[in-house]
Design a binder for these strands. Structure first.
Length: 883
RNA sequence: GGGCAGUUAGCUCAGGUGGAAGAGCAUUUCCCUUACAAGGAAGAGGUCGCGGGUUCAAACCCUGCACUGCCCACCA
């Protein structure tokens, strides 16, 4: 077998990603004899190309899917993309704008053609990137939130909800983005700090010289004021309640009323109430039956104010109002004031709250049920700490504004009856899949469809049921088998936008939660903890990492990067160790494979552990395997990855392979076969356990090892239940000796090529046997020419000393030893021993410790004290000779 | 204003149920020893944010506080 010295990921990765797709390795069918394990991918927006967030999200899901497949589940991971509503429309709008095309001039139909063209040309970019990443998705099931079937699901859901009376139309205060020209739901508004001013304005009382001062951040909305509100307990204003004030500049009469929500301590304690521009004010107006006067239109320009203001932008109007108030002496003072201003989550334009006719979804019942199922652990958050934010959000949720004044999206399946002139009649609108033929009220046959489209998250919320064909009429086997899905993996930024809504819709339409587990992972940040963004220029492009270091490297680095639920910081440097790990795997495997050449009949079935090192590595392997599997099961992907790394590098390579070298290269074919069997077995188990994280390199090596089934389709090898802890302890003694001797060699600068002899003075007879039996280990790894065991050995001149594992070891180093260095070393040892004696003694002299600590703990301390005492004695003795 | 996380070696982070502080990177010394220099061996580096408490024993449990980050919220 020809294996390069440095792992060449490029050829390996290309080969396997192609293989998995072409051979439909991850395709799944209903199979009632097998348990399903299902994940639906969070559908990426079609504007997207792979960024670190996707890379993390999909890596974690792929790890879970591949692990479950190895465990024998019928796994299914459904791929797909999202049409992405505003985000996508914005991208195409911008592209057209560059070409000088305006969407309104183009018209709805032509614009949608452009949208579809764009979607068809670039919308699958991210899917091909997921293939490159090796994601074990079922590529026969690619879904798109706006394909025919998913569109049907959206209509079906809308019609059902409408007919239940849960979807209603109403004029309400909504979040309006003047740039996107659409309403947004409450969660689509992001708040940003903005430096502004607080203007204190005099509102004069009618027929009086008195006035009340209000404080506002939005003076330009004053033309929509319908009252001034104060707290009923505010002594300053009690006498003014019910009085009339004259609204400055327009001299309209408005009343001073009391409302308990007014904060006496803020501003002047008096609030100008503009019900059409502010949610709080709107509430006050509702409670007090106040008039609502629109002052800002959907273009962000003033209406209904004085003639000279009409058509001004908010900014222009503000400047003008302030100036006029100042001239008229109404402006008392202007304070600097920082506050949060709502911004569109897609284009960052300042949101104007304004009155608008929209479709709303009544979420009260759905929210209640969505909270219940999480309380009852029908769906479990990992980590659990996300349960509370989820619940709190649902508890305070207001009805969902689901209509958007966009063109790209699912057009609302509502039809209005129109008369011959094309004007809407007063007949009841009809929710329907197709244009109705006859009006139920007036028997008319002319209809127009609602112009609006649905919030993109409406179709996302249906994802776990729509991908399994809930919308299709035929009896649905797939939905029954694969739903509820097993786990949803996502970052915490879309718990509200998406996760909660899927639970609501899943319960509403299926009477069953959409997934058993929700695995919330962190958001990828740069090495300074900043969110990655193009504007900050701190983006680490996963494709670049894949190109430079390989996909397995990217995946491993991400898998290790953080504990569940915590944001992770990642930098170029963090990929180096993963890259090195891949190379280490390659070379260790290459070494085993080289030695396997020409050896036949290596059967996993009859592995016999002959030596201590064999028993030890099998015991460690068993321990590690349990730990890794448990970690995968509980979504502790970082623990699984790190455990594998450590085991492979330290236990397997640094110790077991090193200890096995002699036998591996031995002339004795029996001995050689025996050790290679274990080496190969351990390697295979590691490869299997690691394959979910690093599927490429493990698949390749697995194949080179001669396995017929590919690793992804293999089943976990049985661990040899070698779990005798005794062997781990025995090995520990030997390792301690080896390390002690290596330390001396290193301190004395003895070249690795130079073999030295060692005299082992036995202090603890119980250890003698193990070390004697395995003295070759010590000789080999500490590079000794010979070891002689005896009792009461006299210290040879010019020798170095190690007191370890029940031995006093002398290394005669005539001509090599540096007496001063040895002295320093021993003095340090001595100090440590003294410290230990002090600590242990004081513990053992403490009656409370003796009475209350478990006996095993007391024994441990006694042993420690004993060893320290021996060390102290032997080291001081030795120091005398050095003078 | 609430809620949630975090604070451990120079940097990035691990540390189930409390019993002598760990890794990677960086750093020092030695070594191209026939798998790997993207490597091997050895070392240096930490009063585990601060103050109380519980306990024989606290990085870990309880309680204050400080700082950082995130999310939510109608102080105009």
């Amino acid at each position: 077998m020809d294996m390069e010295k440095v792992y060449n990921f490029k050829t390996v990765e290309g080969k396997w990603s192609k293989y998995w797709v072409e051979n439909k390795v991850f395709s799944a069918k209903v199979d009632k004899n097998k348990k399903p394990f299902t994940i639906v991918i969070p559908p990426a927006n079609i504007t997207g190309s792979l960024h670190m967030g996707h890379a993390l999200n999909t890596t974690l899901q792929d790890i879970i899917i591949r692990f479950k497949k190895l465990q024998g589940y019928n796994t299914l991971w459904v791929p797909g993309t999202d049409h992405g509503g505003i985000a996508t429309q914005n991208v195409v709008e911008k592209l057209l704008k560059k070409k000088g095309i305006n969407k309104y001039e183009l018209g709805r139909e032509k614009f949608l053609e452009k949208m579809w063209q764009w979607r068809n040309e670039t919308g699958d970019t991210i899917l091909s990137q997921l293939k490159m990443m090796g994601c074990g998705l079922d590529w026969d099931r690619v879904a798109f939130t706006m394909d025919e079937s998913r569109s049907k699901a959206v209509k079906k859901a809308f019609i059902e909800l409408f007919n239940k009376g849960l979807i209603y139309r109403g004029k309400r205060l909504v979040n309006w983005c003047t740039r996107c020209g659409t309403a947004l739901s409450d969660i689509e508004v992001e708040y940003a700090d903005e430096k502004s001013s607080l203007w204190h304005i005099k509102y004069p009382l009618k027929d009086s010289n008195e006035y009340i001062v209000i404080a506002t951040t939005r003076p330009e909305t004053m033309f929509g004021d319908t009252t001034v509100a104060v707290n009923p307990d505010d002594d300053r204003y009690k006498k003014l309640l019910g009085k009339i004030v004259m609204l400055p500049l327009v001299n309209r009469e408005i009343k001073i009323i009391a409302d308990y929500t007014i904060d006496k301590t803020f501003g002047t304690g008096a609030l100008k109430v503009t019900p059409s521009c502010d949610a709080v004010d709107n509430e006050i107006a509702r409670r007090n039956n106040l008039e609502v006067i629109d002052v800002i239109d959907i273009n962000g320009k003033l209406i209904n104010g004085p003639e000279s203001y009409k058509g001004l932008t908010v900014k222009e109007a503000r400047e003008k109002v302030v100036k006029e108030l100042e001239i008229n002496g109404h402006l008392i003072k202007v304070e600097d004031y920082d506050h949060k201003v709502g911004k569109c989550y897609r284009c960052s334009t300042t949101i104007e709250p304004l009155m608008s006719e929209q479709w709303f979804l009544d979420v009260r019942q759905m929210s209640k049920k969505a909270i219940e199922v999480v309380d009852e652990c029908k769906t479990i958050f990992h980590p659990e700490s996300w349960k509370r934010p989820y619940t709190l959000w649902l508890e305070n949720l207001r009805d969902w504004c689901i209509s958007r004044q966009l063109w790209w999206g699912h057009r609302i399946p509502i039809y209005y009856c129109v008369d011959k002139q094309g004007n809407k009649t007063n007949c009841k609108p009809i929710a329907s899949f197709e244009k109705p033929t006859q009006c139920l009220c007036c028997k008319g046959s002319n209809f127009v469809q609602d112009e609006d489209v649905l919030d993109t998250w409406f179709s996302s919320a249906l994802w776990p049921i729509s991908v399994f064909g809930w919308q299709e009429d035929k009896h649905n086997e797939e939905l029954k088998y694969f739903y509820p899905t097993s786990v949803l993996a996502t970052g915490h930024e879309i718990i509200y936008l998406w996760v909660a809504r899927m639970v609501q819709f899943g319960l509403e339409f299926m009477k069953e939660v959409p997934y058993r587990d929700v695995f919330i992972h962190g958001i990828v940040r740069d090495k300074h903890g900043k969110k990655m963004s193009k504007s900050l220029g701190n983006v680490v492009d996963p494709r670049e990492i894949m190109d430079n270091y390989g996909t397995d490297t990217l995946r491993f680095a991400l898998a290790c990067a953080g504990a569940p639920g915590r944001d992770i910081q990642i930098s170029q440097e963090s990929f180096l160790s993963a890259r090195n790990f891949a190379n280490k795997i390659w070379n260790a495997s290459r070494f085993i494979i080289m030695n396997l050449e020409g050896i036949e009949n290596l059967d996993d079935e009859d592995i016999t552990a002959i030596e201590l090192s064999d028993k030890w590595i099998l015991a460690e392997l068993y321990k590690m395997s349990l730990k890794v599997k448990k970690a995968y099961e509980s979504y502790n992907i970082d623990t699984a990855s790190r455990t594998l790394y450590d085991f492979f590098w330290v236990k397997y390579c640094d110790w077991y392979i090193e200890l096995s070298k002699i036998r591996m290269m031995s002339e004795d074919l029996q001995a050689k076969k025996q050790v290679l069997k274990i080496l190969a077995h351990v390697l295979k188990v590691i490869l299997q356990l690691l394959s979910p994280v690093m599927p490429f390199i493990t698949s390749e090596i697995w194949q080179i090892l001669g396995e017929k089934k590919i690793i992804a389709e293999s089943e976990f090898l049985n661990e040899l239940k070698e779990n005798d802890k005794c062997n781990i302890e025995k090995m520990k003694s030997l390792q301690d000796i080896i390390i002690a001797l290596r330390t001396i060699r290193s301190k004395m600068n003895i070249s690795p090529a130079q073999q030295i002899e060692a005299l082992f003075n036995v202090l603890d007879e119980s250890k003698e046997k193990v070390v004697k039996e395995n003295e070759s280990y010590v000789k080999q790894l500490a590079k000794l020419s010979s070891i002689s065991f005896a009792k009461n050995i006299v210290r040879p001149k010019n020798s170095a000393l190690a007191v370890v594992s029940g031995f006093e070891i002398f290394l005669p180093l005539e001509g090599l030893i540096d007496i001063e260095k040895e002295k320093t070393r021993l003095l340090k040892d001595l100090a440590l021993a003294k410290q230990e004696i002090e600590k242990s003694t004081s513990k053992l002299q403490n009656d409370n410790f003796i009475n209350r600590a478990p006996s095993s703990e007391i024994e441990k301390i006694k042993t420690r004290l004993n060893e320290a005492n021996i060390k102290l004695e032997k080291v001081s003795e030795s120091l005398k000779f050095l003078d």
